[in-house]
Structure formats: structure tokens, C-alpha cells
Design a protein around this nucleic acid. Structure first.
Length: 159
DNA sequence: GCCAACGTTGGC
DNA sequence: GCCAACGTTGGC
């Protein structure tokens, strides 16, 4: 298992849960629940570790873009919203004894005074391999390379 | 296992 | 609101 810090991008629709909502949450912490895609689930369950860095992305927003940073404070564990029949993300196939869906906990680190819009990201050479920017890509939890992270943080410091 | 139909995502 | 692209479902 790798000890070095890893980086991720989490998408959220601001009308559902924005970075401002995260900042307002108790202790600025939230469960990243409700992910119902197997590829994203695998990252949440197997790969995302305590201390990893998270780019907080607003999708279906005007404009869409990276709006801040968060930190993983709890690695993957079963998403209990799947067990709750009254929850919109309820999944009768997920059993507490054999959970299908997982979540992590994140803590707010920073809300950018100036978000980085999607169209600006597209214009940056070193980011052209980002999963986010691939045609047709819609993975809501995705890995970010150390190089991509560095480029983006440098960009933030210049804004 | 194939694949058509359907539902969802998410930019524009 | 439109629609392209993707993921899932289910009949066969």
C-alpha cells in the first residue's frame, strides 16, 4: 500500500451540496454519501486514504469548475444511506452484512476566492490528460495526478 | 453474452 | 431545455 499522499476530484451539484454547504457543516465535515457508480465506489472503498487531497468541483453549475479544497479524514466505509428505505439513495440490494456502496469523510480546507472554471482548466496544457477533461467523462469521484494537483494549486495562488 | 431500451450525467 | 455520451437493465 502506498504511503504517499494521493489526490482526487469530487463532483457535486451545488444545488444539492455545495462547498458553502461543506463549510457550514458541523466541524466542516461531511460524509461523501450517495455515490452509486461502481468505478467511483471502487475508489471510495479501496483507494482513497486518510490525508488524501480533494479538489471540490461544482457540476451543473454556472460556470462549472473547481471551487475549493478538502481533505480526506476517514477512508472508505459502508454508505448507510443505501440501507435506509426513506433515503433517496436507498438501494435494496445493499445489505449491511454485505454492503455494495461506500463513502469517505472529508473536511473543508479552502474555498477559493476565485473558482477555476472548466473552460480555464481546458486551456491549460499540463491538464489535458485530466479525467475531468476527457470527452464523455462523467465519473464523479476520480483520481488526480500529483502533477495535475500541483498545476492547479499554482494556478490558485496566482488568482 | 449480446444489445436495444432506458435512465442519468452534465456541458452548453 | 437540448442532447451526446455513458452506465445499467433485462429479454432473448
Amino acid at each position: 500500500m502506498s504511503k504517499s499522499k494521493q489526490y482526487w476530484l469530487f463532483k457535486s451539484e451545488p444545488s444539492v451540496f455545495s462547498i458553502a454547504d461543506l463549510e457550514r457543516s458541523p466541524k466542516k465535515i461531511t460524509h461523501w454519501d450517495g455515490v452509486r457508480n461502481y468505478q467511483a465506489r471502487n475508489f471510495l472503498r479501496d483507494s482513497i486514504k486518510l490525508g488524501d487531497g480533494v479538489l471540490f468541483y461544482h457540476s451543473n453549475a454556472d460556470p462549472p469548475g473547481i471551487v475549493g479544497l478538502a481533505e480526506v479524514i476517514q477512508a472508505g466505509y459502508p454508505d448507510h444511506t443505501a440501507f435506509d428505505s426513506k433515503d433517496p439513495h436507498f438501494d435494496p440490494d445493499s445489505d449491511p452484512q454485505k454492503p455494495i456502496w461506500y463513502m469517505v469523510d472529508i473536511h473543508h480546507v479552502k474555498t477559493f476566492s476565485t473558482p477555476i472554471p472548466l473552460n480555464a482548466l481546458k486551456a491549460i496544457k499540463g491538464l489535458d490528460k485530466m479525467i475531468l477533461l476527457q470527452k464523455g467523462s462523467r465519473l464523479s469521484v476520480q483520481p488526480v495526478t500529483g502533477q495535475e494537483w500541483k498545476i492547479i494549486l499554482n494556478l490558485v495562488n496566482k488568482l
